[in-house]
Design a protein around this nucleic acid. Sequence first.
DNA 1: TTAAGGTTATCTCTACAGGGGTACTTCCCT
DNA 2: AGGGAAGTACCCCTGTAGAGATAACCTTAA
Lengths: 222, 222
Amino acid sequence: MADEVQSILVIDDHPLMRKGILQLIAMAPDLRLAGEAGDGVSGLKMACQLLPDLILLDLNMHGLSGMDTLKALKAADLDARVIILTISDSEEDVVEALRLGADGYLLKDMEPEDVLHALQVAASGQIALSERVASILAAALRHENQAKSPVSIKLTEREQAILSLIATGYSNKLIARKLKITEGTVKVHVKHLLRKLDLSSRVEAAVWAIKNQDFSKGHFEG
Amino acid sequence: MADEVQSILVIDDHPLMRKGILQLIAMAPDLRLAGEAGDGVSGLKMACQLLPDLILLDLNMHGLSGMDTLKALKAADLDARVIILTISDSEEDVVEALRLGADGYLLKDMEPEDVLHALQVAASGQIALSERVASILAAALRHENQAKSPVSIKLTEREQAILSLIATGYSNKLIARKLKITEGTVKVHVKHLLRKLDLSSRVEAAVWAIKNQDFSKGHFEG
DNA sequence: TTAAGGTTATCTCTACAGGGGTACTTCCCT
DNA sequence: AGGGAAGTACCCCTGTAGAGATAACCTTAA
Protein backbone atom coordinates (compact mmCIF):
# COMPACT_ATOMS: atom_id res chain seq x y z
CA MET A 1 0.00 0.00 0.00
CA ALA A 2 2.71 2.42 0.96
CA ASP A 3 4.96 0.93 -1.66
CA GLU A 4 3.53 3.12 -4.35
CA VAL A 5 4.54 6.73 -4.74
CA GLN A 6 2.33 8.94 -2.57
CA SER A 7 1.38 12.42 -3.66
CA ILE A 8 1.50 14.96 -0.89
CA LEU A 9 0.08 18.43 -0.34
CA VAL A 10 1.84 20.75 2.09
CA ILE A 11 -0.18 23.43 3.90
CA ASP A 12 1.90 25.71 6.10
CA ASP A 13 2.04 29.45 6.33
CA HIS A 14 5.76 29.62 7.03
CA PRO A 15 7.63 29.81 3.74
CA LEU A 16 10.87 28.72 5.32
CA MET A 17 9.28 25.69 6.89
CA ARG A 18 7.72 24.81 3.53
CA LYS A 19 11.16 25.03 1.94
CA GLY A 20 12.50 22.55 4.45
CA ILE A 21 9.61 20.17 3.98
CA LEU A 22 9.78 20.34 0.19
CA GLN A 23 13.46 19.54 0.27
CA LEU A 24 12.73 16.56 2.47
CA ILE A 25 10.03 15.33 0.10
CA ALA A 26 12.33 15.80 -2.87
CA MET A 27 14.80 13.46 -1.23
CA ALA A 28 12.24 10.73 -0.63
CA PRO A 29 11.75 8.37 -3.57
CA ASP A 30 8.30 7.27 -2.47
CA LEU A 31 6.88 10.77 -2.10
CA ARG A 32 5.82 13.17 -4.79
CA LEU A 33 4.88 16.77 -4.15
CA ALA A 34 1.32 17.45 -5.26
CA GLY A 35 1.34 21.11 -4.28
CA GLU A 36 1.95 23.60 -1.54
CA ALA A 37 -0.29 26.18 0.07
CA GLY A 38 0.43 29.04 2.46
CA ASP A 39 -2.99 29.24 4.06
CA GLY A 40 -5.99 27.12 4.89
CA VAL A 41 -8.33 28.39 2.21
CA SER A 42 -6.00 27.85 -0.71
CA GLY A 43 -4.96 24.57 0.87
CA LEU A 44 -8.57 23.41 0.80
CA LYS A 45 -8.98 24.37 -2.84
CA MET A 46 -5.82 22.58 -3.81
CA ALA A 47 -6.82 19.50 -1.87
CA CYS A 48 -10.08 19.30 -3.82
CA GLN A 49 -8.39 19.87 -7.16
CA LEU A 50 -5.26 17.78 -6.73
CA LEU A 51 -6.74 14.97 -4.64
CA PRO A 52 -3.42 14.14 -2.94
CA ASP A 53 -2.85 10.94 -0.98
CA LEU A 54 -1.40 12.80 1.99
CA ILE A 55 -1.91 16.28 3.35
CA LEU A 56 0.67 17.75 5.70
CA LEU A 57 -1.04 20.45 7.69
CA ASP A 58 0.29 23.10 10.05
CA LEU A 59 -1.91 24.04 13.00
CA ASN A 60 -0.81 27.56 13.70
CA MET A 61 -1.90 29.46 10.67
CA HIS A 62 -3.23 32.92 10.18
CA GLY A 63 -6.65 33.32 8.67
CA LEU A 64 -8.39 29.97 8.65
CA SER A 65 -6.75 28.11 11.51
CA GLY A 66 -5.22 24.68 11.14
CA MET A 67 -8.01 23.12 13.19
CA ASP A 68 -10.65 24.74 11.02
CA THR A 69 -8.83 23.62 7.91
CA LEU A 70 -8.72 20.10 9.29
CA LYS A 71 -12.46 20.19 9.96
CA ALA A 72 -13.12 21.39 6.43
CA LEU A 73 -10.83 18.78 4.91
CA LYS A 74 -12.58 16.01 6.79
CA ALA A 75 -15.99 17.43 5.94
CA ALA A 76 -15.02 17.48 2.26
CA ASP A 77 -14.92 13.71 2.40
CA LEU A 78 -11.64 13.38 0.53
CA ASP A 79 -9.62 10.21 0.52
CA ALA A 80 -6.56 12.10 1.62
CA ARG A 81 -4.98 11.26 4.93
CA VAL A 82 -4.29 14.38 6.94
CA ILE A 83 -1.16 14.58 9.05
CA ILE A 84 -0.66 17.47 11.43
CA LEU A 85 2.86 18.90 11.49
CA THR A 86 3.14 21.59 14.11
CA ILE A 87 5.26 22.98 16.90
CA SER A 88 2.43 22.72 19.40
CA ASP A 89 2.78 19.79 21.76
CA SER A 90 -0.10 20.92 23.94
CA GLU A 91 -2.39 18.20 25.10
CA GLU A 92 -5.45 20.10 23.97
CA ASP A 93 -4.21 20.45 20.41
CA VAL A 94 -3.23 16.81 20.15
CA VAL A 95 -6.53 15.60 21.51
CA GLU A 96 -8.60 18.01 19.46
CA ALA A 97 -6.78 17.23 16.22
CA LEU A 98 -7.18 13.48 16.66
CA ARG A 99 -10.82 13.91 17.65
CA LEU A 100 -11.31 15.85 14.44
CA GLY A 101 -9.98 12.91 12.50
CA ALA A 102 -6.34 13.72 11.91
CA ASP A 103 -4.42 10.66 10.67
CA GLY A 104 -1.22 11.74 12.29
CA TYR A 105 0.29 14.32 14.60
CA LEU A 106 3.95 15.16 14.17
CA LEU A 107 6.11 17.77 15.84
CA LYS A 108 8.31 20.13 13.89
CA ASP A 109 11.31 19.42 16.04
CA MET A 110 11.40 15.82 14.85
CA GLU A 111 14.35 14.60 12.89
CA PRO A 112 13.70 14.71 9.16
CA GLU A 113 14.21 10.95 8.82
CA ASP A 114 11.58 10.36 11.48
CA VAL A 115 9.19 12.63 9.64
CA LEU A 116 9.66 10.58 6.48
CA HIS A 117 9.09 7.37 8.36
CA ALA A 118 5.95 8.79 9.96
CA LEU A 119 4.63 9.78 6.54
CA GLN A 120 5.09 6.21 5.33
CA VAL A 121 3.29 4.93 8.40
CA ALA A 122 0.44 7.33 7.76
CA ALA A 123 0.26 6.35 4.10
CA SER A 124 -0.05 2.72 5.10
CA GLY A 125 -3.23 3.49 6.95
CA GLN A 126 -1.95 3.72 10.50
CA ILE A 127 -2.04 6.72 12.77
CA ALA A 128 1.35 8.42 12.77
CA LEU A 129 2.40 9.98 16.04
CA SER A 130 5.79 11.22 17.06
CA GLU A 131 7.08 9.68 20.26
CA ARG A 132 6.54 12.75 22.36
CA VAL A 133 2.98 13.08 21.09
CA ALA A 134 2.27 9.48 21.96
CA SER A 135 3.29 10.05 25.56
CA ILE A 136 1.32 13.29 25.70
CA LEU A 137 -1.70 11.41 24.49
CA ALA A 138 -1.19 8.70 27.07
CA ALA A 139 -1.02 11.35 29.78
CA ALA A 140 -4.16 12.97 28.43
CA LEU A 141 -6.07 9.75 28.67
CA ARG A 142 -4.90 9.33 32.22
CA HIS A 143 -6.11 12.80 33.16
CA GLU A 144 -9.45 12.18 31.53
CA ASN A 145 -10.37 9.60 34.12
CA GLN A 146 -9.44 11.47 37.25
CA ALA A 147 -9.24 15.24 37.44
CA LYS A 148 -12.16 16.60 35.51
CA SER A 149 -10.49 17.68 32.35
CA PRO A 150 -11.26 21.32 31.65
CA VAL A 151 -13.10 20.22 28.55
CA SER A 152 -15.38 17.87 30.42
CA ILE A 153 -16.83 20.62 32.56
CA LYS A 154 -19.98 21.66 30.88
CA LEU A 155 -20.73 25.32 31.33
CA THR A 156 -23.57 26.72 29.27
CA GLU A 157 -22.78 29.44 26.76
CA ARG A 158 -24.19 32.05 29.07
CA GLU A 159 -22.18 30.79 31.99
CA GLN A 160 -19.02 30.79 29.93
CA ALA A 161 -19.69 34.32 28.79
CA ILE A 162 -20.22 35.45 32.35
CA LEU A 163 -17.18 33.55 33.56
CA SER A 164 -14.98 35.25 31.03
CA LEU A 165 -16.33 38.64 32.13
CA ILE A 166 -15.61 37.72 35.74
CA ALA A 167 -12.12 36.81 34.60
CA THR A 168 -11.62 40.36 33.37
CA GLY A 169 -12.65 41.73 36.76
CA TYR A 170 -16.23 42.79 36.06
CA SER A 171 -18.78 43.06 38.89
CA ASN A 172 -22.23 41.50 38.58
CA LYS A 173 -23.69 44.92 37.93
CA LEU A 174 -21.31 45.62 35.06
CA ILE A 175 -21.87 42.17 33.61
CA ALA A 176 -25.60 42.76 33.74
CA ARG A 177 -25.22 46.06 31.92
CA LYS A 178 -22.94 44.51 29.33
CA LEU A 179 -25.21 41.55 28.63
CA LYS A 180 -28.39 43.59 29.03
CA ILE A 181 -29.90 41.38 31.68
CA THR A 182 -30.66 42.12 35.34
CA GLU A 183 -28.08 41.81 38.06
CA GLY A 184 -30.22 39.17 39.70
CA THR A 185 -29.97 36.98 36.63
CA VAL A 186 -26.23 37.40 36.55
CA LYS A 187 -26.14 36.24 40.15
CA VAL A 188 -28.04 33.11 39.23
CA HIS A 189 -25.55 32.28 36.48
CA VAL A 190 -22.63 32.99 38.77
CA LYS A 191 -24.15 30.75 41.40
CA HIS A 192 -24.60 27.93 38.90
CA LEU A 193 -21.12 28.15 37.43
CA LEU A 194 -19.55 28.27 40.87
CA ARG A 195 -21.38 25.12 41.79
CA LYS A 196 -20.39 23.38 38.56
CA LEU A 197 -16.75 24.30 38.99
CA ASP A 198 -16.86 23.49 42.71
CA LEU A 199 -15.60 26.94 43.63
CA SER A 200 -16.80 29.32 46.30
CA SER A 201 -16.16 32.83 45.04
CA ARG A 202 -15.85 34.83 41.86
CA VAL A 203 -12.19 35.40 42.59
CA GLU A 204 -11.52 31.68 42.48
CA ALA A 205 -13.58 31.55 39.31
CA ALA A 206 -11.49 34.29 37.74
CA VAL A 207 -8.28 32.50 38.63
CA TRP A 208 -9.65 29.22 37.33
CA ALA A 209 -10.80 30.81 34.11
CA ILE A 210 -7.48 32.46 33.40
CA LYS A 211 -5.54 29.30 34.06
CA ASN A 212 -7.87 26.85 32.36
CA GLN A 213 -9.94 28.62 29.80
CA ASP A 214 -7.31 29.90 27.43
CA PHE A 215 -7.95 27.36 24.71
CA SER A 216 -10.50 29.68 23.20
CA LYS A 217 -7.82 32.06 22.11
CA GLY A 218 -5.22 31.36 19.52
CA HIS A 219 -2.97 28.41 19.67
CA PHE A 220 -0.32 30.81 20.75
CA GLU A 221 1.86 32.42 18.11
CA GLY A 222 0.25 35.50 16.63
CA MET B 1 30.57 46.29 4.38
CA ALA B 2 27.85 43.90 3.46
CA ASP B 3 29.43 43.40 0.09
CA GLU B 4 31.72 40.73 1.40
CA VAL B 5 30.55 37.21 1.98
CA GLN B 6 29.12 36.88 5.47
CA SER B 7 29.46 33.68 7.45
CA ILE B 8 26.35 32.71 9.32
CA LEU B 9 25.53 30.38 12.19
CA VAL B 10 22.02 28.99 12.48
CA ILE B 11 20.65 28.06 15.90
CA ASP B 12 17.19 26.50 15.80
CA ASP B 13 15.87 23.35 17.38
CA HIS B 14 13.56 22.52 14.51
CA PRO B 15 15.46 20.39 11.99
CA LEU B 16 12.98 21.08 9.25
CA MET B 17 13.20 24.80 9.78
CA ARG B 18 16.99 24.54 9.68
CA LYS B 19 16.74 22.69 6.37
CA GLY B 20 14.69 25.54 4.94
CA ILE B 21 17.06 28.19 6.22
CA LEU B 22 20.12 26.31 5.01
CA GLN B 23 18.65 25.99 1.54
CA LEU B 24 17.97 29.71 1.55
CA ILE B 25 21.53 30.49 2.58
CA ALA B 26 22.85 28.14 -0.08
CA MET B 27 21.05 30.18 -2.70
CA ALA B 28 22.43 33.49 -1.50
CA PRO B 29 25.83 34.34 -3.05
CA ASP B 30 26.77 36.71 -0.26
CA LEU B 31 26.11 34.27 2.58
CA ARG B 32 28.17 31.31 3.66
CA LEU B 33 27.03 28.80 6.24
CA ALA B 34 29.38 28.70 9.19
CA GLY B 35 27.50 26.03 11.05
CA GLU B 36 24.19 24.93 12.48
CA ALA B 37 23.13 24.07 16.01
CA GLY B 38 19.99 22.46 17.37
CA ASP B 39 20.13 23.93 20.85
CA GLY B 40 21.40 26.95 22.73
CA VAL B 41 24.36 25.33 24.43
CA SER B 42 25.93 23.86 21.30
CA GLY B 43 25.04 27.08 19.49
CA LEU B 44 27.09 29.01 22.03
CA LYS B 45 30.07 26.70 21.67
CA MET B 46 29.98 26.94 17.91
CA ALA B 47 29.67 30.72 18.02
CA CYS B 48 32.86 30.93 20.08
CA GLN B 49 34.74 28.49 17.86
CA LEU B 50 33.54 29.59 14.43
CA LEU B 51 33.25 33.34 15.10
CA PRO B 52 30.56 33.88 12.50
CA ASP B 53 29.55 37.32 11.22
CA LEU B 54 25.89 36.62 11.72
CA ILE B 55 23.94 34.39 14.09
CA LEU B 56 20.37 33.46 13.28
CA LEU B 57 18.70 32.50 16.53
CA ASP B 58 15.35 30.93 17.29
CA LEU B 59 13.61 32.04 20.47
CA ASN B 60 11.50 29.03 21.30
CA MET B 61 14.02 26.38 22.09
CA HIS B 62 14.03 23.60 24.58
CA GLY B 63 16.76 23.52 27.16
CA LEU B 64 18.53 26.84 27.17
CA SER B 65 15.90 29.25 25.88
CA GLY B 66 16.50 31.58 22.97
CA MET B 67 16.51 34.58 25.29
CA ASP B 68 19.07 32.98 27.55
CA THR B 69 21.19 32.06 24.56
CA LEU B 70 20.96 35.64 23.36
CA LYS B 71 22.10 36.89 26.76
CA ALA B 72 25.02 34.50 26.75
CA LEU B 73 26.00 35.41 23.20
CA LYS B 74 26.03 39.09 24.06
CA ALA B 75 27.89 38.45 27.28
CA ALA B 76 30.55 36.51 25.36
CA ASP B 77 31.44 39.78 23.67
CA LEU B 78 31.62 38.32 20.17
CA ASP B 79 31.60 40.48 17.08
CA ALA B 80 28.73 38.49 15.66
CA ARG B 81 25.47 40.22 14.99
CA VAL B 82 22.56 38.25 16.40
CA ILE B 83 19.31 38.16 14.49
CA ILE B 84 16.26 36.59 16.07
CA LEU B 85 14.18 34.43 13.75
CA THR B 86 11.06 33.22 15.49
CA ILE B 87 7.36 32.66 15.20
CA SER B 88 6.62 34.78 18.25
CA ASP B 89 5.30 38.22 17.42
CA SER B 90 4.48 39.00 21.04
CA GLU B 91 5.33 42.47 22.18
CA GLU B 92 7.16 41.19 25.23
CA ASP B 93 9.47 38.99 23.22
CA VAL B 94 10.27 41.71 20.70
CA VAL B 95 11.00 44.28 23.37
CA GLU B 96 13.00 41.89 25.53
CA ALA B 97 15.10 40.62 22.64
CA LEU B 98 15.98 44.11 21.48
CA ARG B 99 16.72 45.21 25.05
CA LEU B 100 19.08 42.27 25.31
CA GLY B 101 20.93 43.55 22.28
CA ALA B 102 19.51 41.60 19.37
CA ASP B 103 20.52 43.14 16.04
CA GLY B 104 17.39 42.05 14.31
CA TYR B 105 14.03 40.42 14.88
CA LEU B 106 12.48 38.50 12.01
CA LEU B 107 9.35 36.39 11.86
CA LYS B 108 9.30 32.94 10.40
CA ASP B 109 6.33 33.64 8.23
CA MET B 110 8.32 36.17 6.19
CA GLU B 111 8.97 35.53 2.55
CA PRO B 112 12.40 33.96 2.00
CA GLU B 113 13.52 36.91 -0.17
CA ASP B 114 12.64 39.29 2.64
CA VAL B 115 14.64 37.22 5.07
CA LEU B 116 17.67 37.44 2.81
CA HIS B 117 17.26 41.16 2.48
CA ALA B 118 16.95 41.54 6.23
CA LEU B 119 20.13 39.55 6.74
CA GLN B 120 21.97 41.92 4.42
CA VAL B 121 20.57 44.86 6.33
CA ALA B 122 21.73 43.34 9.59
CA ALA B 123 25.17 42.60 8.18
CA SER B 124 25.51 46.23 7.16
CA GLY B 125 25.18 47.27 10.79
CA GLN B 126 21.56 48.29 10.88
CA ILE B 127 18.81 46.75 12.95
CA ALA B 128 16.77 44.37 10.84
CA LEU B 129 13.10 44.18 11.66
CA SER B 130 10.32 42.64 9.66
CA GLU B 131 7.48 45.02 8.92
CA ARG B 132 5.08 43.48 11.37
CA VAL B 133 7.69 43.60 14.12
CA ALA B 134 8.32 47.28 13.44
CA SER B 135 4.67 48.09 13.97
CA ILE B 136 4.54 45.94 17.08
CA LEU B 137 7.49 47.83 18.42
CA ALA B 138 5.89 51.15 17.66
CA ALA B 139 2.79 50.07 19.53
CA ALA B 140 4.91 48.92 22.45
CA LEU B 141 6.58 52.30 22.74
CA ARG B 142 3.19 53.96 22.77
CA HIS B 143 2.02 51.75 25.64
CA GLU B 144 5.14 52.45 27.61
CA ASN B 145 4.26 56.09 28.06
CA GLN B 146 0.73 55.67 29.22
CA ALA B 147 0.06 52.42 31.02
CA LYS B 148 2.32 52.34 34.04
CA SER B 149 4.77 49.60 33.39
CA PRO B 150 4.23 46.77 35.86
CA VAL B 151 7.74 47.15 37.17
CA SER B 152 7.28 50.72 38.29
CA ILE B 153 4.52 49.92 40.73
CA LYS B 154 5.86 49.66 44.24
CA LEU B 155 3.93 47.36 46.49
CA THR B 156 5.24 46.69 49.96
CA GLU B 157 6.21 43.13 50.87
CA ARG B 158 3.05 42.68 52.86
CA GLU B 159 0.93 43.98 50.04
CA GLN B 160 2.61 41.68 47.56
CA ALA B 161 2.08 38.71 49.84
CA ILE B 162 -1.57 39.56 50.20
CA LEU B 163 -1.95 40.19 46.49
CA SER B 164 -0.57 36.79 45.65
CA LEU B 165 -2.98 35.19 48.10
CA ILE B 166 -5.84 37.11 46.51
CA ALA B 167 -4.62 35.77 43.19
CA THR B 168 -5.13 32.25 44.43
CA GLY B 169 -8.70 33.06 45.40
CA TYR B 170 -8.37 33.51 49.15
CA SER B 171 -10.88 35.62 51.08
CA ASN B 172 -9.77 38.28 53.55
CA LYS B 173 -10.63 35.97 56.42
CA LEU B 174 -8.49 33.15 55.06
CA ILE B 175 -5.63 35.52 54.33
CA ALA B 176 -5.83 36.80 57.90
CA ARG B 177 -5.70 33.27 59.24
CA LYS B 178 -2.80 32.37 56.98
CA LEU B 179 -0.73 35.45 57.87
CA LYS B 180 -1.85 35.43 61.51
CA ILE B 181 -3.17 38.99 61.50
CA THR B 182 -6.73 40.26 61.85
CA GLU B 183 -9.14 40.46 58.97
CA GLY B 184 -9.31 44.22 59.48
CA THR B 185 -5.61 44.53 58.85
CA VAL B 186 -5.90 42.47 55.71
CA LYS B 187 -8.60 44.85 54.55
CA VAL B 188 -6.30 47.79 55.07
CA HIS B 189 -3.58 46.19 52.95
CA VAL B 190 -6.09 45.27 50.27
CA LYS B 191 -7.36 48.84 50.29
CA HIS B 192 -3.85 50.16 49.85
CA LEU B 193 -2.81 47.82 47.08
CA LEU B 194 -6.00 48.46 45.20
CA ARG B 195 -5.32 52.18 45.36
CA LYS B 196 -1.73 51.75 44.22
CA LEU B 197 -2.73 49.58 41.29
CA ASP B 198 -5.68 51.81 40.49
CA LEU B 199 -8.10 48.92 40.68
CA SER B 200 -11.47 48.68 42.35
CA SER B 201 -11.93 45.10 43.42
CA ARG B 202 -10.01 42.06 44.52
CA VAL B 203 -11.10 40.28 41.36
CA GLU B 204 -9.37 42.88 39.21
CA ALA B 205 -6.38 42.56 41.51
CA ALA B 206 -6.31 38.79 41.02
CA VAL B 207 -6.48 39.17 37.26
CA TRP B 208 -3.79 41.84 37.32
CA ALA B 209 -1.54 39.71 39.48
CA ILE B 210 -1.83 36.65 37.30
CA LYS B 211 -1.21 38.57 34.10
CA ASN B 212 1.59 40.78 35.32
CA GLN B 213 3.44 38.76 37.86
CA ASP B 214 4.32 35.83 35.60
CA PHE B 215 7.49 37.10 33.95
CA SER B 216 9.37 34.42 35.75
CA LYS B 217 7.87 31.71 33.61
CA GLY B 218 8.71 30.63 30.11
CA HIS B 219 8.02 31.89 26.65
CA PHE B 220 5.13 29.66 25.76
CA GLU B 221 5.53 26.61 23.56
CA GLY B 222 6.45 23.38 25.18
C1' DT C 1 -46.70 15.30 24.50
C1' DT C 2 -44.35 15.32 28.45
C1' DA C 3 -39.61 15.98 30.40
C1' DA C 4 -35.42 18.29 30.85
C1' DG C 5 -32.38 21.89 30.55
C1' DG C 6 -31.29 26.78 29.64
C1' DT C 7 -32.32 31.77 30.24
C1' DT C 8 -34.63 35.08 32.40
C1' DA C 9 -36.50 37.22 36.60
C1' DT C 10 -38.19 37.84 41.27
C1' DC C 11 -37.67 37.58 46.47
C1' DT C 12 -35.14 37.22 51.26
C1' DC C 13 -31.17 37.04 54.05
C1' DT C 14 -26.32 36.64 55.67
C1' DA C 15 -21.63 37.34 54.91
C1' DC C 16 -18.00 39.61 52.77
C1' DA C 17 -15.69 43.59 50.55
C1' DG C 18 -14.05 47.96 50.48
C1' DG C 19 -14.07 53.20 51.48
C1' DG C 20 -13.50 56.56 55.14
C1' DG C 21 -11.22 57.67 59.38
C1' DT C 22 -7.98 57.38 63.79
C1' DA C 23 -4.15 55.47 66.33
C1' DC C 24 -0.34 52.89 68.05
C1' DT C 25 4.19 50.60 67.30
C1' DT C 26 8.61 49.72 64.99
C1' DC C 27 12.26 50.70 62.09
C1' DC C 28 15.01 53.55 59.24
C1' DC C 29 16.93 57.81 57.72
C1' DT C 30 18.66 62.36 58.24
C1' DA D 1 15.15 63.96 68.14
C1' DG D 2 12.10 64.19 64.54
C1' DG D 3 9.95 62.61 60.15
C1' DG D 4 8.27 59.15 57.34
C1' DA D 5 7.01 54.72 55.75
C1' DA D 6 5.28 50.27 57.00
C1' DG D 7 2.56 47.12 59.67
C1' DT D 8 -0.91 46.42 62.83
C1' DA D 9 -5.64 47.20 64.77
C1' DC D 10 -9.91 49.31 65.60
C1' DC D 11 -14.31 52.09 64.34
C1' DC D 12 -18.49 53.06 61.12
C1' DC D 13 -20.86 52.58 56.96
C1' DT D 14 -22.49 51.24 52.21
C1' DG D 15 -22.41 48.20 48.50
C1' DT D 16 -21.72 43.79 46.64
C1' DA D 17 -21.72 38.72 46.63
C1' DG D 18 -23.68 34.51 47.01
C1' DA D 19 -27.10 30.88 49.00
C1' DG D 20 -31.82 29.67 49.00
C1' DA D 21 -36.27 29.30 46.91
C1' DT D 22 -39.74 30.03 43.20
C1' DA D 23 -41.37 30.63 38.61
C1' DA D 24 -42.06 32.00 33.99
C1' DC D 25 -40.70 31.14 29.04
C1' DC D 26 -38.38 28.71 25.40
C1' DT D 27 -36.07 24.98 22.91
C1' DT D 28 -34.80 20.32 22.29
C1' DA D 29 -34.79 15.52 23.17
C1' DA D 30 -37.23 11.30 24.53
